[in-house]
Amino acid sequence: MTTSSILTPPASIPAPARRGDAGGARLTFGRILDAEWTKIRTVRSTVWTLASLFVVSVGLTALICLAAAGDLGEAGNDEPVGAFVTWGLMFGQIAALVLGILVATSEYASGMIRTTLAAAPRRWSVLAAKATVVTGLLLVLGTLTAFASFLAGNYFLDREGIGLSLGDGDVLRAMFGGGLYVAVLGVFGLALGSLMRHTAGAVTVGITLIFVVGNLVNLVPGAFGEWLTKLMPGNAGSAIANVESFNPDLLEPWTGFAVFAGETALLLAIAGWLFSKRDA
């Protein structure tokens, strides 16, 4: 056989210090977490989705407050002023959902999921690590976004003398609530993406479920329709991110958030169970 290889003579494979010996180099949750963090920070789609979450939320909040501040400041206004200072998040949150979905589905699109599971065959740990990374990232960015939205929107309200104070309990709750809401929404996307394994499909179902069906169930008559509206994931979860809500019938902020977190945990559990059962 010829030994003159084109690029590298593979005759001698340099080996690391531990040669075939797994001592000390065990698979741990911390290592899987570190790997998932490395994955998410080394693709541009993460930067793009996070940037759009921030820019859309802050930008639209500033715009609506600029446009509405005059009317809101007039005597006899009955619109909830507090609902305007985080208004843009209603659209920015789509990016959080998409980020969560992509963390799962992008690996199926490329076949990389099989590389992941060959390196880390403990599937529940892999899913938990992905959920942790998505939660951490969106918790920080969602909170920053909420504060920036408030500062931008409230600037215009202040000019009309109807500005809110950060010291207000509901305002502060909505700031950190914004982080909590988009973090759980991201995990909701992750669970959905893991179940469906297909980016376009999961994005369509996610947006339909949270943003379209959530509003349509309003049309279902009676107490049943009322409760359905309260319990839809987007409706239940978003109350915590708003100082006040346009819809007075929704669940209380913390109650609603607990419902949304519970629904997400259930979806993630189903996704994890199927993830460990199915062929990769």
């Binding site: 698979l27 693709v43 490329s110 990389m112």
Partner: peptide
């Protein structure tokens, strides 16, 4: 696993 088994299962299974 990576210390015991290495595999090339499909080309370009990368992001």
């Amino acid at each position: 696993p990576l210390h015991e088994v290495g595999a090339l299962l499909e080309a370009k299974a990368i992001h």
